[in-house]
Nucleic acid binder design. Structure first.
Ligand SMILES: [Zn+2]
Length: 328
DNA sequence: AGTGCCGGGAT
DNA sequence: ATCCCGGCACT
């Protein structure tokens, strides 16, 4: 949209002129519209230079008490090639480059990005994070289809696919461990059974036995920085997916797994380890499912200050993120 | 209808 | 990194 800048500048100029020639100062008095963002609305209003810092704001960017382990900073851009053997990947080494000047460390030509695709029937949802499709599946497909997950397990069916991003940020970006700030002890888990490293994949193609240790976090090596599913994880079991199964020549790592739900809020995980049988779906049916989060009770900045005093919200609230000023 | 915020995009 | 928004769960 090339005309955007011009419009904004024109508008800004207009505002400035009006301000300089007119004594009246207007308040935001209106929420941003399709053509007006908050930045403009606020900038057009009184320059709130005084209301920028609140004493509590110091907590906004507080660091969690738990420092992250010194994980290897070397971001080896995805080089995992398809095990089909049809691709002659180039040099994988070269990780040791001179510390001296090295303009443009030779970015990989075709940067692959792993995406996650839903495997449910007729569903082609593709998200960039595993938590993303998990949420998708949970809300879209596991919509409380009377399936009893009282045993504390949910079944997700999705596959990893590599997408060739022609022009996109390189390196493993988008690794957001979803707020490690929770101070309380992690949810109670049953002791880890046997071993199960938590993430597995079925080689749909016969010749895909070993591949790289793409996900298995059991190997704390460098590349497995991928998607550390933090707190939750546990039993992994196989089942025949209710949704559609591998059709013709399915993509790469399709993995199906059962992960226990133990994060966020959850009513309670009482007892009754009943057999979890797959069942109907999408049925509008009843409301709240077992996998629901009862949302905190505390009022957050938005409700406390209101839309008209948005500049008083904490940063997180302004960005529609989890409030860090009023916690639960 | 309104709130809280995850996922993702723009800059 | 900072800032913002679509959309959805939940109220
Ligand atoms: Zn807040």
């Amino acid at each position: 949209n090339p005309s955007g800048h011009a419009d904004k500048e024109v508008m800004a100029a207009t505002v400035l002129t009006s301000l300089s020639t007119s004594p009246l100062v207007l308040y935001p008095s209106s929420v941003p519209t399709a053509s007006k963002t908050w930045k403009e609305v606020l900038s057009a209003s009184y320059s709130s230079s005084t209301s920028g810092n609140w004493s509590w704001d110091a907590s906004d960017q507080s660091v969690p008490s738990t420092p992250s382990p010194p994980l290897s900073k070397d971001a080896n851009t995805g080089f995992l090639h398809s095990a089909q053997g049809d691709d002659a990947s180039e040099d994988v080494s070269e990780s040791t480059h001179f510390m001296f000047e090295d303009p443009i460390p030779r970015k990989r030509k075709n940067s692959m990005k792993v995406m996650f695709k839903c495997l449910w029937k007729n569903c082609e949802k593709v998200l960039s994070t595993s938590s993303g499709i998990q949420r998708h599946i949970r809300t879209v497909h596991l919509r409380n289809s009377d399936s009893d997950y009282s045993d504390g397990e949910e079944d997700f069916y999705y596959s990893e696919i590599e997408v060739n991003m022609d022009s996109l940020t390189e390196g493993l970006s988008s690794l957001t461990p979803t707020s490690p700030t929770t101070a309380g002890p992690p949810p109670i888990f049953p002791p880890p059974l046997s071993d199960v490293s938590r993430s597995e994949y079925v080689g749909v193609n016969g010749s895909q036995s070993h591949t790289s240790s793409l996900l298995s976090q059991s190997a704390p090596s460098t590349l497995c920085h991928i998607r550390t599913d933090h707190a939750y994880q546990i039993s992994v079991s196989w089942q025949q997916p209710p949704p559609v199964i591998f059709k013709g020549a399915p993509g790469p790592v399709t993995h199906v797994r059962t992960v226990s739900i133990g994060e966020k809020r959850q009513p309670a995980v009482p007892s009754h380890a009943t057999v979890s049988k797959n069942h109907a779906l999408v049925t509008p049916a009843t409301k709240s499912a077992p996998g629901t989060k009862p949302r905190g009770e505390a009022k957050k900045c938005r409700k406390v200050y209101g839309m008209e005093k948005r500049d008083m919200w904490c940063t997180a609230c302004r960005w529609k993120k989890a409030c860090q000023r009023f916690t639960d």
